[in-house]
Amino acid sequence: MGKNKFLVVIIGFITVTAFWMYWVSTNPSGTESALIRFLSIDELRAETNHGRVKLGGNVADESIQINQNDLLEATFILSQGEATLPVRYYGTRPDLFKDGAEVIVEGAMEGEVFQAEVLQTKCASRYEGDLRDVQTENIEEM
């Protein structure tokens, strides 16, 4: 048995996998799409025809409104510096979701509101805040 036969099998396997990766990347199965563009609010606004996208930003202060008849429904303003965008989300919210939190939302525009299907807070495994804020508060209190 020559070396070549093995080479053929190995290269064949790699080629198939490469095609498979390409296929998975370009063909969404159902609602789940493998590759999603991560845009800024301005980029999103500039586009007319946009599908499912991801956005990152902060929750604007005091913008969270929770439907008192259904706690699972929340709306808030996503801010990226000057740019802001209203977002609606239905579902279980992460514990770290609150004013000022850094969040990533995934979904699509529905009219003027971004309908988020996924809401993630950043840094689930890290916890790095601003020491000064907390401490100055404490000191003023004393």
């Binding site: 498979w20 799409s33 493998a34 590759l35 999603i36 563009r37 991560f38 991801k54």
Partner: peptide
């Protein structure tokens, strides 16, 4: 433009 790769990609592949 950042294009994120989600769990569906990894799972399907």
């Amino acid at each position: 433009t950042k294009i994120t790769v989600g769990a569906p990609f990894f799972n399907q592949v």
